[in-house]
Design a protein around this nucleic acid. Structure first.
Length: 599
DNA sequence: TGCGGCTATTG
DNA sequence: CACAATAGCCGCAG
């Protein structure tokens, strides 16, 4: 074929675009398929074209530029028309990294990168709604320097020329964000390098692509097994409302039959449960499970109540209505995914994907001809602490498969004490462990403990923090800041703990996501698909015949990620197992032959 | 109807 | 019970 100059990859090459270079992308909403006119690409601030989604896919396969997207929504739209990009620069994801917080729309991201006040971002005047949407000015940037509301709020999709312009704006934004990442400096301890921040920006961006795929593909669930489990725990699926009421009353009866003198109570009301327990001679300040457990042998109603709680939990949150709402007829459990949420930028998921009761994992079963490769990072938080603080002694301890053994030796305490002391340092726990262990911890690992103490101090003072990968953790937006006398001590202490933990949990999340997107990229050749991300655990759905290769690949990806992420010799390891069912993973790893590990 | 409190599940 | 998250129900204010 002599017509290669006509395809998109050829045109991009002609414009000087090479593998990994930024290319602006804008995808109009509202179509499940993408004919000409719904996608625009941009190669400079004033040059771009309308193309088809298929052309983008083909150019991605042959040239693989880094596509600039406005947000995960762009990835979801492309996913919807069957296009899965290899890599991206996601403006919203990088905005969250650079500036913290959750809001990251085009108008705000534009203002932030240009140093304009967030409260000056223009919004549509609600009064104009009656007159219809004003047609967007052909110039996206207003005289005040902000993005015009008409553009930021969707007016860019109104015509092909505006769509192209929007892709051009995206490209410009990405370049400015890239430059800003190279300059950002904040914090005194172990100031992360620009290289790490750029690498983090790229993996956080590509994680948005992964999130769109996780949402679209879902987690394999065997509906028959799920139904059987539910029947065992909460009884058969009720056929009507009366039956549902009867089954519910029967469950309540198993507790209330132990009530003295036929007393009754609404078991869903903590106040009434407390009164019920008092009538049985048990006086407790609250009715949490860990507190009631001490009374399990005092009165039979306590054990019955705790049992009821477990069943009630499944019935209300993970019952038949959950299956109906979240599991498709294709046996895939689907939820909404976010790439960086909360205090430290962890991934989050809805539909119970991140907090499914362990017993229900028995229903998470690989499809015919497939298996799961399950990989679990071991002792990730103390290892991340060693890496980001650069503490030589703690880095040396990461050489051990069980990091707490050398730490215990160093402190002159037993392993459980060493573990509690380490976790206390990272989370800010102040009760329940000997102060002597903390003193020795400071002496043995002064750099690591100093890193945590510094985060704690900065957070207490209301100063923003930045993680190793460059994520801004906002401490200044909370109320009560800067009013030393007007703030309770508990509040300040709590904020210190928050900051102390955020720099560790956040850095761990960044490492994890870099690992996840590496597995996503390398695994494609094996038809291995990441189907679940769980903070320190990856579940990869893979054809049976490729299982062995996938196990090695997941381990290699961790080694590659660790090398790229941290310059020092910190050792990270993962327990990697091949299983048919998610629930099989833990026992195999604990009691079976040594799992594949990687350093 | 919205929201804080309580409770449970997970990493 | 130390950190993070999602989610349901109750009780109360408006």
């Amino acid at each position: 074929m002599g017509d290669h100059d006509q395809d998109l990859a050829g045109r991009l090459r002609q414009a000087g675009i090479a593998r990994g270079d930024l290319v602006g992308l804008a995808v109009a909403p509202g179509r499940t398929t993408a004919p000409v006119g719904t996608v625009a690409v941009a190669v400079s601030s004033d040059a771009g074209w309308i193309v088809t989604a298929d052309e983008v896919a083909a150019a991605d396969a042959s040239l693989r530029p880094r596509w600039v997207t406005w947000s995960g929504e762009t990835a979801a739209r492309l996913c919807g028309c069957g296009v899965r990009l290899a890599t991206s620069w996601d403006i919203a994801a990088v905005h969250r990294l650079l500036f913290g917080g959750w809001l990251a729309g085009p108008g705000l991201a534009w203002a932030a990168i240009h140093g304009l006040a967030a409260d000056g971002v223009p919004a549509h005047d609600p009064g104009t709604l009656f007159a219809g949407m004003p047609s967007p000015d052909e110039e996206p940037v207003g005289p005040d320097g902000y993005l015009r509301a008409e553009w930021a709020e969707g007016g860019w999709a109104d015509s092909e020329s505006r769509l192209v312009r929007w892709a051009c704006v995206a490209l410009g934004m990405a370049r400015e964000q890239e430059a800003a990442l190279g300059k950002t400096a904040l914090g005194k301890t172990a100031e992360p390098g620009a290289g790490v921040r750029l690498a983090t920006a790229r993996s956080e961006s590509t994680a948005e692509l992964l999130c769109a795929e996780l949402a679209a593909d879902g987690l394999p669930v065997d509906l028959e097994v799920a139904g059987r489990l539910l029947t065992e725990i909460i009884g058969p699926r009720p056929r009507n409302a009366d039956e549902a009421t009867r089954i519910r009353a029967e469950r309540d009866g198993l507790v209330l039959r132990h009530a003295p003198g036929g007393a009754t109570a609404d078991l869903r009301s903590p106040v009434q449960v407390r009164a019920l327990l008092r009538s049985a001679g048990i006086d407790v300040p609250d009715t949490r499970a860990w507190r009631l457990e001490q009374y399990a042998k005092v009165h039979p109603i306590v054990a019955a109540l705790l049992e009821w709680r477990k069943a009630e939990r499944v019935a209300t949150t993970y019952g038949y209505s959950w299956l109906d709402a979240c599991v498709g007829p294709d046996g895939r459990l689907r939820g909404a995914w976010t790439g960086s949420d909360g205090a430290a930028g962890r991934m989050t998921a809805s539909a119970g994907l991140h907090n499914m009761p362990a017993v229900l994992r028995q229903a998470v079963i690989a499809e015919d001809g497939h298996v799961f490769v399950r990989a679990d990072l071991g002792q990730i938080e103390p290892r991340v602490l060693a890496a980001v603080s650069g503490d030589r002694a703690l880095i040396a301890a990461t050489e051990a498969d069980d990091l707490y053994l050398p730490v215990a030796g160093e402190l002159g305490v037993d392993r459980p004490t060493a573990k509690v002391a380490m976790i206390a340092a990272m989370y800010g726990q102040t009760t329940g462990y000997g102060g002597q262990a903390a003193t020795r911890m400071k002496a043995a690992y002064p750099v690591a403990m100093g890193y945590l103490d510094d985060a704690d101090r900065q957070a207490r003072a209301g100063h923003d923090l930045r993680t190793y990968g460059g994520r801004l953790v906002r401490m200044s937006s909370g109320d009560g800041e800067g009013v030393p006398g007007g703030e309770s001590r508990a509040r300040v202490v709590g904020r210190g703990r928050y900051g102390r933990n955020a720099v560790i949990q956040g850095a761990a999340a960044e490492l994890f996501k870099m690992w996840a997107v590496t597995v996503r990229a390398r695994g494609a050749a094996l038809d291995a698909r990441v189907v679940l991300c769980l903070h320190d655990e990856l579940l990869v759905h893979v054809p049976e015949r490729a299982a062995g290769a996938a196990v090695r690949l997941v381990g290699d990806c961790l080694a590659e990620t660790a090398r790229r992420w941290v310059p020092g010799p910190t050792r990270f390891l993962a327990e990697i197992t091949t299983v048919k069912c998610w629930a099989d993973a833990k026992p195999t790893a604990r009691t079976g032959q040594p799992a594949d590990t990687v350093s």
